[in-house]
């Protein structure tokens, strides 16, 4: 009985491996290309499924795109060439990292711009506050202050 349970447990351990069978096994000549494949399939967005990289998606088009990425890597194409190839067909939509160009200037520039604006506002506020606190004391206030200091000393 114990043996059967153990065997069943062993079988259960195989389940995750079976689940991965849906994603193709690729062979690479060197680990650098393999890493590039991983990076590219993680940064290309599946055009059919809204928020998945092609490396995570079971959609048929994602499979086709992975295949093309693999073949082009084997062909010795550069990352940029592969990304251009995809953008030419599926548009900027497939780039998780939009390129810096005229149209995307606002997209990239807005966060930096807002941080800069915030810094300017903070500097402005600090200055205004410093100016009000550094205002000279009136004659009456100075007299009171002197009296207080004198009392402190004599005590």
């Amino acid at each position: 009985m114990a043996l059967i349970t153990r065997l069943l447990l062993c079988l259960l351990l195989w389940l995750p491996a079976l689940g991965q069978a849906a994603v193709e096994v690729r062979e690479f000549d060197d680990p650098v290309t393999e890493q590039r494949y991983r990076d590219l399939t993680a940064t290309l967005r599946c055009p059919k499924c809204e928020n998945q990289a092609i490396g995570d998606s079971d959609s048929p088009i994602a499979g086709d795109m992975r295949e093309r990425v693999y073949l082009q890597l084997q062909d010795g194409r550069s990352d940029k060439e592969i990304l251009d190839f995809m953008v030419n067909r599926f548009g900027d939509y497939v780039l998780y990292n939009p390129r810096l160009e005229g149209r995307t200037l606002l997209l990239w520039g807005l966060p930096a711009g807002l941080v800069l604006l915030g810094a300017v506002v903070v500097v402005f506020m600090v200055r205004v506050r410093r100016r009000t606190s550094a205002r000279d004391l009136s004659a009456e206030e100075r007299a009171r202050l002197d009296a207080l200091i004198k009392r402190e000393r004599t005590e």
Binding site: C46, P47, S59, I61, D64, R68, R89, F90, G91
Partner: peptide
């Protein structure tokens, strides 16, 4: 093979 489809950017 879906090769023309791919070049057309067809995703479904």
């Amino acid at each position: 093979e879906g090769s023309l489809g791919f070049d057309l950017g067809v995703y479904g």
